[in-house]
Design a protein around this nucleic acid. Sequence first.
DNA 1: CCCCTTTTTGACAATCATTTTCATTTTCTC
DNA 2: GAGAAAATGAAAATGATTGTCAAAAAGGGG
Lengths: 125, 125
Amino acid sequence: MSTRRETVRQALTGCTGFRSAQDLYADLRAGGSKIGLTTVYRALQALSDSGEVDVLRTDDGEAVYRACDSEAHHHHLVCRKCSTAVEIEGPAVEEWAAEVGARHGFTGVTHTVEVFGTCAECARS
Amino acid sequence: MSTRRETVRQALTGCTGFRSAQDLYADLRAGGSKIGLTTVYRALQALSDSGEVDVLRTDDGEAVYRACDSEAHHHHLVCRKCSTAVEIEGPAVEEWAAEVGARHGFTGVTHTVEVFGTCAECARS
DNA sequence: CCCCTTTTTGACAATCATTTTCATTTTCTC
DNA sequence: GAGAAAATGAAAATGATTGTCAAAAAGGGG
């Protein structure tokens, strides 16, 4: 329950899209905070470890985070331009993944599923 | 049709799983090749640009490559331990992704889907 | 074959996100 | 309030990936 971690969590909660550690650090500094970059990284690490935020990797390997509404397992529909994300569910996909894994004799099957596109907002401009 | 690119392609074709640029470089050097690391990166870049190899990112952001049999759109069932991969298909997933994107007003919808687990081979040991 | 242009190559330096280190500050507990 | 434990942040270290640039290889006429 550190103050800094809470600061980072709130900064992230105020965003609709995925943000990188560097982004959040810049946001916080711009907002007057004296937080250090290392602390932002540590906070995000802790938050994602505890499952409070979701992480994914951009095409160029950068980690981006999001504070989602749902605590349950879900996926994302992410805008390629503004990175805004919508939480989505796909029961059929869950089953398919588990089934395909089992069929090939794999155990402890998990999956990553993300959908990308250009949101209506960005398509306009 | 450079010799080096062909060398890298073949090295990758001989693998069943996903391999990083660093891995391939080490393999090639161990096999007596005098290839440079930069060239391995360039070859992989070109091969993935032309769609001849598939790329994905490990949890820690490293890019890993695979020369797949299928040239068509497909996904992978990847072993968490040995990185061996099986090419899989999921028509239902394709449709679901497209539908979910459209429903939220997104255009140019694409998706990434990977399934992970421990293969039968690795589960044994 | 030889000369010249174009492409490819590779050693090395530069980037950039992320992690480590370590000394300082803050928070907790008694 | 004192002392131990956890959190913080500045700066250095790491590690994958990319940029630079000069040398080497490949083509293509003549």
